[in-house]
Amino acid sequence: MLKVTNLHAQVETNPIIKGINFEVKPGEVHAIMGPNGSGKSTFSKLISGHPDYELTDGSIEFDINGKMTNISELEASDRAKEGIFLGFQYPVEIPGVTNITFMHEAFNALCEHQGAEKMNESDFREYVKSKLPILEMNEAFLDRAVNEGFSGGEKKKNEILQMLLLNPRLALLDETDSGLDIDALKTVAKGVNTLRSKYNAIVLVTHYQRLLDYIQPDFVHVLYQGQIIKSGDKTLALELEEKGYDWLTAGIQ
């Protein structure tokens, strides 16, 4: 459903992504690992359409209505409507806008795009409430301003809640495990696993193997200096945990 070919990208004039080939099929879970500054976050933002990153070569194709379509010119909101979701490493605060208003707006934008009937406020609230127990969140969250004053763990849970509500075909989760204690990590992992099905795909961007104990990936990739230098199955992550990245990056300039 996602095919990235020879992707090159830069911020201002700094090349960050230098030739990535990457393919995701429905039902798969991929983990992208790598040391700091390797381009992991940039990669996920590029796919979801962040305007600061300029694609200089290659293509990003996504399955739209059964047809692989180049989406690199689409606005972020249009990519989201086609079913791409980005879970943020640092979720953004929107003062004065309640969580439920924001989610309702996003949900109805998707409904509209898909030609489905929009949901009214009270039905939507019930729908959201049905998802809260998965993430051990209480209803009070819904009436607080988006991410304002949320703890690190609350912010991450809030990201996963949005993911569950929007039910994306492709979820890119950027360091969803950072800043979580072990209980919160388990809860977030439970949320992510709820989305997992033969129709949905998940790409986890992470530093640490520990998240992968709870969300078992089908593939693990190592990103270094803007390129994928090694791919493997979940045992690769365990190997990285044990040996670090040096044995892979030693020969690369």
Binding site: P91, I94, A106, A109
Partner: peptide, 23 residues
């Protein structure tokens, strides 16, 4: 803020109006 809202499928115009209304 804009990118955050847009990445959830909210169009730019609507995103600005949400942010302004919150303000």
């Amino acid at each position: 803020q804009l990118f955050y809202l847009q990445s959830r499928g909210v169009d730019a115009e609507k995103a600005i109006s949400l942010i302004v209304n919150g303000f």
